[in-house]
């Protein structure tokens, strides 16, 4: 039987009914702008720290939204807070504020 190797990697399917995106909702309450993200990737392209490490606000936001908090935070680790992502965001999202809120949340939780 040809299985085409589909079972080689574990399923990354997310069940939105059970995923817990409470952190995302909390950040959303503090920075409502993040809901308008169009995932254009300008933030990643301009990132100062992105030159040195895998940092992606765009992807982190997406992962937070589906409740994958640990993976999301790993993508923000090393952020230098320089604020370039906020300046280039075509949607005018205060990305820097969102990152600050995430950092604070991690400190408390």
């Amino acid at each position: 039987m040809n299985r085409f190797g589909y079972r080689l990697s574990p399923s990354s399917q997310i069940d939105l009914d059970v995923s817990d995106n409470s952190l995302f909702r909390e950040i959303l309450a503090g920075e409502p702008g993040i809901s308008t993200c169009i995932a254009c990737g300008s933030c990643v392209a301009s990132c100062s720290a992105g030159v040195f490490d895998k940092i992606s606000f765009r992807k982190a936001l997406h992962l937070l939204e589906v409740g994958m908090d640990t993976e999301a935070v790993a993508l923000l680790e090393g952020c230098m807070m320089c604020g370039k992502c906020t300046l280039v965001c075509p949607r005018g999202i205060n990305t820097r504020h969102a990152i600050v809120l995430i950092k604070r949340k991690l400190n408390k939780g």
Partner: peptide
């Protein structure tokens, strides 16, 4: 706090 996002790179 000191328990923050690290800059390992």
């Amino acid at each position: 706090s000191e328990k923050r996002l690290r800059m390992a790179y």
